[in-house]
């Protein structure tokens, strides 16, 4: 089996997994995958680059099972989930017959208990001799989830081989970004080749929350909720956002300058919309950042700025005194309309 190693699932249906019966065939399969971009239902339309493949023995399987661990936000606990219907269509099964998914929740005070392993093993209708090893496997998987602060651990498929062994044929592990400070060895494994280059640039600039979109209005907003509503509003006003960007709460001008650097280096951006409502973030710092951005680079795209909140007077003064040709707005509707107009009038 030759398997594309990318940051996405759904590879089988997308042609990212190939079978070969000779070394030559394996070579050909690997060559066809390496250097290509794989588009699955979990990637965007642009897909992700295939730079590595995993070559492994094809196994004759008797059954394909599913086993996963994630945080269940409604119960506020990690949930271990398993299903007899492993393989490619697990999401559909969860939607159509949720009763076929076995679930057990782990209490952080008590920790994982052996009965939970049995619950999963018997729930999967495993043959008696596999119940104990399956229970241990589930316990070990939970230990991995907990020790490494994962947000997801998934074995799909977990197979029972013809010779009655349990074998993980594929696995996915996601890590909680907030806990990476505890796991520098995991942080070092991040493969930047799997992420959009502009997003990598944003990360290097200290902008954690940037997602590239299809439109032409570069948006800089503070707070994810406000940033999303600005995108919603722009769309209602007939505009197309070029990105989602939450500048966060860092009170330094450098990050603002870097956001402008991102917009200025993105040929798709035809106008910039800055909508800041200061709270933790101080409006004067943002304003100073905008002025610095204009002094450090040649910005020819129209910029619409709307400021409100903590230290707004100081911020307004800074923009006023800079003499920069910035389009001012005093409400989010006005700001969105002016940004849309700025693109149209270019």
């Amino acid at each position: 089996m030759i398997k594309a190693q990318v940051y996405a699932g759904g590879r089988g249906k997308a042609g990212g997994i190939k079978q070969a019966s000779s070394p030559e065939e394996a070579g050909k399969a690997a060559a066809s995958l390496l250097g290509s971009r794989l588009v699955t239902h979990q990637t965007g339309a642009e897909g992700v680059p295939v730079e590595q493949v995993l070559v492994e023995e094809a196994v004759n399987t008797e059954r394909e099972l599913y086993l996963g661990i994630v945080i269940d936000s409604s119960r506020r606990l990690p949930v271990i989930m398993a299903s007899e219907a492993g393989g490619m269509d697990i999401e559909e099964i969860a939607l159509k017959s949720p009763e076929k998914i076995i679930k057990t929740w782990v209490d952080p005070a008590a920790g994982f208990q052996p009965f939970q392993g049995r619950q999963i093993a018997y729930g999967l209708n495993l043959q008696p001799e596999l119940v104990k090893p399956a229970g241990e496997l589930v316990g070990n998987l939970f230990r991995l989830f907990k020790t490494l602060d994962c947000s997801l651990v998934e074995i799909n498929p977990l197979v029972v081989t013809m010779d009655k062994r349990l074998l993980a044929l594929d696995a996915k592990v996601n890590f909680d970004d907030n806990a990476l400070f505890r796991h520098p060895e995991i942080a070092a494994m991040n493969d930047k080749g799997q992420v959009d280059p502009l997003e990598v640039r944003a990360q290097d600039f200290g902008i954690k929350n940037y997602i590239k979109m299809e439109g032409d209005i570069g948006c800089m907003v503070n707070g994810a909720g406000l940033a999303m509503s600005v995108l919603d509003l722009l769309t209602l006003c007939g505009g197309k956002p070029a990105n989602f960007l939450d500048i966060g709460t860092a009170n330094n001008t450098e990050r603002v300058v870097n956001a402008f650097r991102l917009f200025n280096s993105d040929p798709a951006v035809k106008a910039i919309l800055v909508n800041i409502f200061g709270g933790m973030a101080r409006v004067d710092v943002i304003a100073r950042g905008i002025v610095e951005a204009y002094s450090q680079m040649d910005i020819r795209i129209p910029t619409v700025v709307r400021l409100a909140g903590t230290n707004v007077q100081e911020g307004e003064c800074i923009l006023e005194e800079s003499g920069l040709k910035i389009i001012r707005a005093y409400g989010m509707q006005e700001a969105a309309e002016k940004a849309v107009a700025a693109v149209k009038n270019r």
Binding site: A8, G68, V70, I90, N156, K172
Partner: peptide, 9 residues
């Protein structure tokens, strides 16, 4: 973007 199926399940 996401990986895996557990979130959707």
């Amino acid at each position: 973007r996401r990986m895996g199926h557990a979130g959707a399940i």
